[in-house]
Design a protein around this nucleic acid. Structure first.
Lengths: 120, 120
DNA sequence: TGCCCTACCCACCAAAAGGTAACTATTAGA
DNA sequence: TCTAATAGTTACCTTTTGGTGGGTAGGGCA
């Protein structure tokens, strides 16, 4: 396999938390362990396919852990790994900065809404 | 215009610094004002088109400022706005976390290289 | 028997993001 | 007159990302 090359640290970070869904998923898992259906309810805009696909990728990066309960109907829980917890501070700041950005744009007259300002 | 709706703060943040190039550009501008050609040299993988396109979008979001010098050949400088500076801490952490991530993956046996560990 | 539940997989399609290459303007200077 | 220099645009194409709608497993229960 050819050596993977990065030019600057942030490239690697963005490869892991970038894209439309990963940071949102991680922000939810930051507060609690959640099962698949709970995540789907917390992120109503995401499709089944994207949810599991993104969770798989986060699992492969050792950011989230997947716990399968052997029962029927199935029960699967996701949580941050210890390593994933090292992103917690960053995720919090990303949430807060975004909330402020939305306030700012609203103050500037933009039609804009933030449904959940639940970040602790 | 229909009201733009976000479900969680991080969505707004990612809309601004997400994508393949924006966070890289911002990490460079965090340390210094740079002209277009300097940015292009600092980010050799980026194309002309992407560089100006992403800079325009960052300008529209009031994150970077564009200073045009009236001379020939043209000279244009980019820098973070005061508001853009509010991202500086986050950008730094994204760089550092990525550097650690690369170290971690290298320690785990992955063929991986980081060319510039120049974040201050 | 037949249907429910949950998680998740697949095939297929649409849209967004990004890449390439060729072109512009303008003036100094050979 | 011709070229170099810088920043930028445009048309066209490829790749990546995301969405839809279908299907699976397998035990519980009416």
């Amino acid at each position: 396999m050819p050596t993977k090359t990065y030019h600057i640290g942030v490239e690697a970070t963005m490869e892991i938390i970038g894209g439309k869904w990963k940071s949102i998923i991680l922000c939810h898992l930051r507060h609690q362990t959640m099962r698949t259906s709970e995540l789907a309810r917390a992120i109503p805009q995401i499709s089944q396919k994207m949810l599991t696909q993104q969770l798989r990728e986060l699992e492969n990066a050792d950011i989230v852990a997947r716990h399968v309960y052997k029962q029927v109907p199935p029960k699967v829980e996701y949580s941050l790994t210890d390593y994933g917890e090292s992103l917690s501070g960053i995720l919090h700041e990303l949430c807060v900065w975004g909330e402020n950005n939305i306030d700012r744009r609203e103050a500037a007259g933009e039609e804009i809404t933030l449904l959940n300002r639940d970040d602790v």
